[in-house]
Amino acid sequence: MSEPVLIADSLTVRYGKRVAVDRLSVSFSGGCLGLLGQNGAGKSSFLRAALGLVKPASGRAVLLGLEAAREGKRVRRNVGYMPERECHIPGLTGVEFVSYCGRLAGLSVADARRRSHEMLAYVGLRDERYRKVDDYSRGMKQRAKLAAALVHDPALLFLDEPTNGLDPRSRREFLATVQDLTRNKNIHVVLSSHLLQDVESVANDVLVLDRGQVRASGPIQSLLARDAGGFAIKVAGEWEPFQRVLEQAGHLVHRDARHQWIVRPASGAAPLSVPALFALARSSRTLLREVVPEEETLEDLFMRALSAPAAGTPAAPSPTPVAEPR
């Protein structure tokens, strides 16, 4: 197995008395890592410590085999960072801006200029590259930031809330670009976001943070509970009579994001079974057309992770489900 791209070992970041990242341990072997957490969970602080911009109070972050705190300059030479906030150099056109970022990353004038044209074309700003960045729309500024983060050809890319404020189409295009980077261009990506669908659509690993502590980490597929204990149900005809019977029996009924009816046992109640569902359907004179065991989504995982106790300081940051699947 190849060497991990990113390792954090008991990493702690403090700002005065406030602990932003608390003994965080994680290992990311490559691909796309989704960094999840609510506002103030410590995502940006973790990224900044990993970039060597903030000195950790204890622990260490190792990127691409380089320790961030000691070799920050070398780390940043090989890492691209797209900040969350809108940021640019006032007065520069798109191509000047990206070229300048390339120069700051150590490219020669000729290389920086060539790469800036390539990167702006790659992110879809070929026709807008001679316009001033100040005049770009929000979506265009995000793309320009991505081009600036890619101009020096980083091996690892940090994206901090990259789809914030984008319209649905721009968001989908942006995520397609990220997917292309990880799958076809061999660039590892750490995607920090509070938009779970974004992470779900591009990431293979996930790290859930809450108040600076790890709540869950590892490959998404191994973290998701295969059987979440509920069932997705379709019926022929009216739904309401069946819903009434289910609720009288104490089960929880709701519609999920895909507009499917989901039935789950109430907390403390006996687990649901297919025969029991058919019995309830018979009593309400409802014909069931489809009964599928419910699979957990990233949103469920996230909520479950936040309600679980902190992972503490695991010595080996291997993928660990936070709770046993029911």
């Binding site: 970039l51 070398r74 900040p83 640019h88 150099i89 006032p90 970022c101 700051l104 600036a148």
Partner: peptide
């Protein structure tokens, strides 16, 4: 313009 983040995320 929040440009400091741009500068300091480079080897600078």
């Amino acid at each position: 313009a929040n440009a400091l983040e741009l500068y300091f995320s480079r080897p600078l």
